[in-house]
């Protein structure tokens, strides 16, 4: 920004018999290059955000006329049990999903060694991230399924009575999060594996000479060097937790009786599903979800800017 502000000033001191483009070339060129990106970003990100906010003040079924409601959708949200269930589940998701970061780190450390065929093991551990979330959801749904599911039968064998995880409002959200963690841990693992490749061997060597080993070595020497990887792992995990839609949709459809809903799923249910089509109310939920995401996004951006300035 500072560069572009000073350039016109320098240009201004010279004789001005060149064309406008020539005179302001250095100031304009970045914008010309940015233009396609800005245009796309405005059309596909900024405009939908504003349109959703606008829509959240209306009652609209997607077909007929819109009716202005003002803040009524938000007032209704405050008195909606299903909304609080979704919000609460979202928080559980956020907290438990974070387990993927240390678990990924652990597996990465474990796999970061030179053994025969280690590449095969690495790719096997990475495998769950490669398969579609829909498939992950189906596999876990069968795993939990009453009467024939492996997990159900295991519990039945140990305790005498099986637990149908996905039919019980006490366990259902945890059951889905466990399914979500499976690929997410693999993702964090791959991030850490690439990070571990870049750990400076001379520092490890020096630390070893100073007598550091085990946990102290990890905490004081390795982890600080993995900070970029940790940052990215946390970012993708937070975002993954907040947009946890596909697993909920595949495994339970929000059930039993709506107890495994999360905000993104509730939004879809209200606005787009078979029995929904309350576009305004769905948009209001989307705005709330956006506000929650904004907290994290602002923090990440703030941190990135700070790091870039070297503070």
């Amino acid at each position: 920004m500072t560069g572009s502000a000073t350039t016109p000033a320098i240009a201004g001191t010279q004789s001005d018999n060149r064309g406008i483009w020539k005179r302001n070339q250095r100031a304009l060129a970045p914008w010309v290059f940015l233009a396609p990106g800005i245009f796309m970003f405005a059309l596909y990100v900024i405009y939908p955000i504003i349109a959703s906010m606008w829509l959240s003040f209306y009652d609209w079924d997607g077909l007929g006329a819109k009716t202005w409601l003002g803040l009524d959708n938000y007032v209704e949200l405050l008195d909606d049990d299903a909304f609080y269930t979704s919000l609460y589940n979202n928080i559980i998701w956020l907290v438990l999903y974070m387990l993927a970061v240390p678990a990924g780190l652990f597996i990465a450390l474990f796999l970061n060694q030179t053994v025969m065929g280690i590449r095969i093991y690495k790719s096997l551990f990475f495998f769950p991230f490669v398969i579609s979330q829909v498939v992950v959801g189906l596999i876990f749904a069968w795993f939990y399924a009453p009467n024939f599911g492996l997990f159900y039968n295991l519990i039945e064998w140990i305790t005498g009575t099986g637990i149908a995880v996905l039919a019980d409002d006490r366990y259902v959200t945890y059951g889905i999060i466990a399914a979500g963690l499976w690929p997410q841990i693999a993702y964090c693992m791959i991030l850490y594996l690439t990070g571990l490749n870049n750990v400076a061997p001379d520092q490890v060597e020096a630390a070893r000479l100073d007598g550091a080993k085990g946990f102290r070595m990890l905490w004081h020497v390795i982890l600080p060097q993995l900070r970029p990887a940790t940052f990215i792992a946390i970012v993708v995990t937070v975002i993954g937790a907040l947009r946890s839609f596909d697993l909920v949709s595949i495994m339970t459809d929000g059930g039993p009786y709506g107890s495994s809903r999360v905000l993104s799923f509730y939004m879809y249910e209200q606005a787009l599903s078979e029995y929904g089509f309350r576009m305004g109310y769905g948009a209001a939920i989307a705005v709330v979800l956006f506000a929650i995401m904004m907290i994290f996004i602002s923090f990440f951006i703030w941190k990135m800017v700070r790091d870039e300035r070297g503070m």
Partner: peptide
């Protein structure tokens, strides 16, 4: 039920029936 009652009512109602049976 989901054809006699409006869609929204049907959804909330059917969730209620499911909860009742649990």
């Amino acid at each position: 039920f989901d054809r006699d009652a409006p869609a929204e009512m049907a959804k909330i109602g059917m969730e209620g029936f499911q909860e009742f049976m649990v």
